[in-house]
């Protein structure tokens, strides 16, 4: 079975999935309410005729199947339509926000992944030691603590009281944040990243460490680990080569899922830090029933998740020779 053939087949399978998900989202969205009613609710001077005109203008009066097919037609041509608020093209809105979210999430996810490796291995090797309990406690704290609370605490301490780091936004321009007295765009961007990245890394780290610790504990009991030790392989290599490769698969699954869902992953953190990201835009769009924007972001997330799942499966087959792709 060729790799290319496999990827093509998986891509073909994605088509009905994407259509199905878009259809369900579309129906659920229409069941949620009337966006025109919602948008004009605060305006006492608007008349029903004007509302009707707006509905007609946005094509909301057509039968739902017609509306869906029209949306689908635009979608396959790469056009998500225009936002109901302000009329900016959805493509433009998404492309202006996607990078900020991806930057924040990718850094946090990868940081959490790479920190969890030594932490998880160490905690498994030193099972039931003070170090293990410390790592586990920190991990459980990370899982249990609400993201918004932790974010606000960090803002209070490091922005409000200490004044070391900016509390909001992704960029300070035109007023660049001074890092040790130096002002430039790169350092400014970095300074803005520190607090939200800390919050997200901490939340991701917790799951990663718990998963890896459990996997390592399981693997370290296996005969092939004892056999590697009995053959005089140095302990470091036994742990980080022979054991880790066997224990890391659940972590790769989580990594794939996190990267797939990353664009939708952090609305709360983005809101706390006023981050100009897609997660926050998604929540806002949902509250306002901004149909084209909701559909646009939903489809981007869907496609990302499907691609990430495919990549995860390929990585699996690459790590474990017993897994065959067909």
């Amino acid at each position: 079975m060729g790799l290319a053939k496999y990827i093509i087949r998986r891509a073909i399978y994605m088509v009905p999935l994407i259509i199905g998900i878009s259809l369900v989202s579309f129906l659920v969205m229409y069941a949620a309410g009337d966006p025109i009613q919602l948008a004009t609710a605060g305006n006492p001077s608007i008349t029903e005729a004007q509302r009707q005109f707006l509905r007609e203008y946005y094509g909301l009066n057509d039968p739902i199947p017609v509306q869906y097919l029209r949306w689908l037609d635009h979608f396959v041509h790469g056009d998500f339509g225009k936002s109901l608020y302000g009329g900016r093209p959805v493509n433009e809105i998404i492309s202006s926000l996607v990078w900020e979210t991806a930057k924040l999430q990718l850094i946090s996810i990868l940081l959490a992944f790479f920190i969890s490796i030594p932490a998880g291995v160490y905690s498994a090797v030193k099972q039931r030691s003070a170090a293990d309990y410390t790592v586990s406690s920190v991990a459980i704290f990370g899982i249990s603590v609400p993201v918004f609370w932790f974010g606000i605490v960090l803002i209070l301490v490091f922005s409000y009281h200490l004044g070391w780091l900016p509390s909001a936004g992704a960029h300070g321009a035109p007023y660049l944040w001074p890092v040790f007295g130096i002002k430039n765009e790169f350092l400014d961007e970095l300074a803005h990243l520190v607090l939200p990245v800390t919050v997200l890394t901490f939340a991701n780290l917790a799951y990663n460490v718990r998963l890896l610790r459990a996997g390592m504990l399981e693997v370290l009991r296996q005969d092939y680990i004892l056999a590697a030790r009995a053959s005089g392989i140095p302990e470091r290599k036994v742990l980080y080569k022979y054991a880790l490769k066997n224990a890391i698969t659940p972590l790769l699954t989580l990594l794939g899922l996190s990267i797939g869902a990353m664009l939708a992953g952090a609305p709360v953190t983005e809101t706390v830090f006023s981050w100009p990201g897609l997660g926050r835009a998604y929540v806002t769009a949902s509250l306002r029933l901004d149909f084209p924007l909701i559909m646009g972001i939903t489809m981007i997330i869907t496609i990302m998740i499907l691609i990430a799942n495919l990549i995860t499966d390929l990585v699996y087959a690459w790590v474990d020779p017993r897994v065959t792709i067909d």
């Binding site: 053959s231 005089g232 140095p234 474990d320």
Partner: peptide
Amino acid sequence: MRKYRGKKISLIFQDPTSSLNPLF
């Protein structure tokens, strides 16, 4: 001690399936 293991003293395990690392 590590230099003795596998070089001067070796061990064959009971279950060959579980004593070979499946991923290498």
